[in-house]
């Protein structure tokens, strides 16, 4: 096999890159969609950070802005109608939002990668899986045809695709759902990114396959000491794999906490209500607690705390003009609610 030269050295150096700075720090990110029906505020000041080797789950319902946040971090937002209107996305100290498209593309390929829910539409149906993988190595690493093929097989092996040597000549539709997800993971990891963003990676899969894929992701993350952002609505999956959780509602992170704390003692009424509203496999409850009403329309987010119309704790102060501040409850624990004490029960 031809020598794979030092991968990071091959990449042009980003100006201002500081290897000691935090891996990823998203600060007060704001994204708007300007549509016919008005301005939809999809992300309204999202702040979170991610360390190497850590799994951060961004948890929320559809329309809460979690996928848009990921797209803005990746720089793949549909624009127009989407616009980043504020905030910073710091990767090792470099603000990605200030980079030109060329540098951005370099970061996207090499440093931050993403996988999606629907692998079939994320892969090009007219090229073989092997070709699509090898192309990455040829384009970004300047590898020869033969060595890029070898590397592709090696990678498919790593994501546990049986008989990888034969399967690189197959087209995406010839793979089953779970296998396709593996192929997409292989493509995302091909250039050894430091951050992997997984947007609902197992939502379309069956539980037994979901378990395989989550296991694989955890293992690859461990081997590579990679930062993983898991975007999901599934509180079960999160409990199994995340280190920390950021709960998102109406474009804001309303609570952020280590995984054990959030399940044992949620501090935000929304988190608490969500946990009480899901049926549990491990015990048969009587009646499920219901969050009344609907998530707000992004063109018309309620004033004050955006959760107040659905919240059991809401009082006059929650309806005011100012959203509740973010309270630091404990190290690494933040929640935005006027009544944290009541929710926590202290």
């Amino acid at each position: 096999m031809t020598p794979v030269t030092d991968i990071k050295a091959q990449m042009d150096v980003l100006p201002g890159l500081d290897p000691r700075a935090p891996l990823l720090h998203v600060d007060d990110l704001r994204v708007e969609f300007r549509t016919r029906d008005g301005v939809a505020k999809a992300v309204n000041g999202a702040t979170f950070y991610l360390n190497a080797g850590e799994t951060l789950a961004i948890l929320g319902e559809s329309g809460c802005g979690k996928s848009v946040t990921a797209q803005a971090v990746m720089g793949i937002l549909d624009s127009p109608p989407g616009h980043v209107t504020g905030g910073r996305v710091l990767y090792r100290g470099v603000d990605l939002l200030k980079l030109g498209e060329k540098d951005r593309r370099k970061v996207r390929a090499n440093r931050i990668a993403m996988i999606f829910q629907d692998a079939l539409s994320a892969l090009n149906p007219v090229y073989t899986v092997g070709f699509q993988l090898a192309e990455l190595f040829r384009k970004h690493r300047g590898m020869s045809r033969a060595s890029s093929k070898l590397r592709s097989i090696e990678l498919l092996d790593q994501v546990r695709i049986p008989a990888a040597k034969d399967r690189i000549n197959d087209y995406p539709h010839q793979f089953s759902g779970g296998m396709r997800q593996r192929v997409m993971i292989a493509m995302a990891l091909a250039l050894d990114p430091e951050v992997l963003i997984a947007d609902e990676p197992t939502t379309a899969l069956d539980v037994t396959v979901q378990a395989q894929i989550m296991g694989l992701l955890a293992e690859l993350q461990h081997q590579r000491n990679m930062g993983l952002i898991l975007i999901t609505h599934d509180m079960g999956v999160v409990a199994d794999v995340a280190d920390r959780i950021s709960v998102m509602y109406a474009g804001k992170i309303v609570e952020e906490a280590p995984v054990y704390d959030i399940y044992a003692r949620p501090a935000h009424p929304y988190t608490k209500a969500l946990l009480e509203s899901i049926p549990r496999l491990d015990h048969k409850g009587r009646q499920l607690n219901v969050i009344r009403g609907l998530p707000p329309s992004l063109t018309d987010i309620p004033s004050g705390c955006s959760f107040h119309p659905r919240c059991g704790y809401a009082r006059e102060i929650c309806r005011g003009d100012q959203p509740p501040p973010s309270y630091q409850i404990a190290p690494h624990r933040i929640a935005s609610c006027h009544f944290i004490r009541e929710v926590l029960g202290v």
């Binding site: 029906d37 009403g293 609907l294 707000p296 329309s297 018309d300």
Partner: peptide, 9 residues
């Protein structure tokens, strides 16, 4: 607040 009041139309 009724949950239908936010409907657009």
């Amino acid at each position: 607040m009724s949950d239908t009041s936010i409907l657009a139309a």
